[in-house]
């Protein structure tokens, strides 16, 4: 009975001796196949990757360096240094929009002064500042949320916007009524926590 593919490979690679396959001694077809297998294994092994120009290696390193330098958005939110690099090159308006959206999603602070339609003024404070007394009871101060205290990146962002209030942001064209930023300011606590979870999830690094 002829040797099958697996048996021929085992003999060709030497994991099985020819003596263990007595059929080989009497079958020209199987011997021919075995010879061809060994020849092709040698041929493939003999012709490997051609050596590129010596200049290619530094060029490859340069390409990798450039693409890595541009890969800032792929980094984690947990990396405060990455946040600085991410925000620095942005225009002032774009940066302020991003800051407002993120900070307001996790740092809803002072109670709103009135019902909808009244001028809204939300003071954004650092996590260490005491919470102002709530007049409506509707807004919940997330500063005291222990789950957010150890988030260094959000602390950094909050500190950068410590003196920014929503009215000022609105005058600058940020968080206009109907915008995403504006919608964030009207979210309840559960909605804000969910928004923060989604943001962290989207920006989490992926391993290989």
């Amino acid at each position: 009975m002829h040797l099958n593919a697996v048996e021929l490979i085992d003999v060709a690679e030497g994991t099985r001796s020819e003596a263990s396959a007595p059929h080989l001694a009497s079958c020209d077809e199987c011997r021919r196949q075995l010879t061809d297998l060994r020849a092709m294994m040698s041929t493939a092994a003999a012709f490997d990757v051609p050596e590129p120009s010596p200049l290619f290696w530094d060029h490859l390193s340069e390409r990798v360096r450039n693409v890595v330098a541009q890969d800032v958005p792929g980094r984690s939110l947990q990396d405060a240094a990455t946040w600085r690099r991410l925000l620095m090159p942005l225009s002032a308006v774009a940066a302020a929009s991003l800051i407002v959206a993120v900070v307001l999603s996790s740092r809803v602070l002072a109670p709103q002064s009135g019902a909808h339609g009244d001028a809204e003024k939300v003071a954004l404070r650092t996590p260490l500042a005491p919470a102002p007394p709530s007049t409506t009871g509707a807004a919940t101060d997330l500063f005291n949320d222990p789950a957010s205290d150890d988030d260094l990146s959000l602390t950094l962002v909050a500190s950068l916007t410590a003196d920014l209030d929503l009215e000022t942001a609105g005058e600058a064209g940020l968080a206009p009524h109907g915008s995403a930023e504006h919608a964030v300011t009207n979210m309840n606590d559960d909605e804000l926590r969910e928004l923060r979870r989604l943001l962290n999830e989207q920006l989490a690094p992926s391993g290989a």
């Binding site: 490859l60 390409r63 693409v67 890595v68 984690s76 690094p205 391993g207 290989a208």
Partner: peptide, 18 residues
């Protein structure tokens, strides 16, 4: 091969924490 090499290193960079 050059393009793929770049991709490999970029993925490695992104996954360094892992």
């Amino acid at each position: 091969a050059s393009d793929l090499s770049q991709d490999v290193f970029l993925r490695a960079f992104r996954g360094l924490r892992a």
